[in-house]
């Protein structure tokens, strides 16, 4: 029933002076689809994510997004007020460091409730109820709702950030190394949680990571980046089980060896 992709990226490039951040990126993202972007640090995947999520203007190319009413907007041609509105309603960003996405000075409940208040919700009890429900979904005890995030562990902070991002019911979520900086056991639990949420909510997502295990678990499709360019793309299992590009082969084999 959906004939247009949720996100359409065409000829996206970003240069830093002479240096290439990313070059000639094209892809479509469909509703409910999770796209993984993998590569080493410096491969351009974070630059690409910043451009896709409207936080860094590209040097060339377009990013088009399909609104709820079916109309398409060019992300960088639209006025900033509309872009900001989009960012706090239809979009969510999960930062690698949860501190970048949270207000560390206010309670967990306020963190989750903020996006609801930003779109005009004015009933305290309902806002608090929604916050409590979301804390439960991300497996944070109800009793911690009034605690400051500073008292949370790293894994809890990341889950709190996810609740804060998803509370407004976004249709597209950008994740930057969502499990980076966490212990291995904590990573596994978080990945499980994320996979459950993405499936339950039918979310579309773009996940940037250097960790192939993350994309294996979350992503339907995969793009492998090197020196700012996509060297291989396809269905996740296909790319990982039968890599064609030598660089992908190297990535996959280095994981297998460790």
């Amino acid at each position: 029933m959906n004939e247009t992709p949720l996100l359409r990226v065409t000829g996206l490039s970003r240069y830093y002076g002479e240096r290439v951040g990313c070059r000639d990126i094209d892809f479509d993202l469909w509703p409910g689809e999770v796209m993984g972007i993998v590569g080493e640090s410096g491969s351009g995947k974070t630059t690409l994510l910043d451009c896709l999520s409207g936080r860094r203007p590209p040097s060339a190319g377009r990013v088009e997004f399909t609104l709820r009413d079916g109309s398409q907007v060019d992300l960088f041609a639209m006025p900033e007020p509309r872009r900001r509105l989009l960012m706090r309603t239809d979009w969510g960003i999960v930062h690698q460091n949860p501190r970048d996405g949270l207000r560390m000075g206010v309670s967990a409940g306020a963190n989750v409730g903020e996006r609801l208040m930003a779109v005009g919700r004015r009933n305290y009890r309902q806002i608090r109820g929604a916050a409590a429900a979301w804390l439960e979904k991300v497996e944070i005890e109800a009793g911690r709702i009034d605690d400051q995030p500073t008292t949370y562990s790293g894994g809890m902070l990341q889950r709190l950030q996810i609740a804060r991002t998803l509370v407004s019911g976004p249709r597209l979520v950008f994740m930057d190394e969502p499990t980076g900086g966490l212990d291995v056991s904590v990573q596994a639990r978080l990945l499980d949680l994320l996979r459950g949420l993405v499936t339950d909510l039918g979310l579309a997502a773009v996940v940037v990571t250097h960790d192939l295990a993350v994309v294996r678990l979350l992503a339907h499709r995969l793009m492998v980046m090197r020196r700012g360019e996509v060297v291989e793309a396809g269905l996740t299992d296909q790319v990982l089980d039968d890599p064609h590009h030598p660089y992908t082969q190297l990535l996959v084999s280095s994981i297998l060896q460790t």
Partner: peptide, 22 residues
């Protein structure tokens, strides 16, 4: 100034929320 331009005032209610919660 940007927040005013965009009437992006959600954060103001965050403070009021905190008051009530506390």
């Amino acid at each position: 100034r940007k927040m005013h331009a965009l009437a992006d005032y959600g954060v103001m209610h965050v403070k009021l929320y905190e008051d009530i919660a506390r």
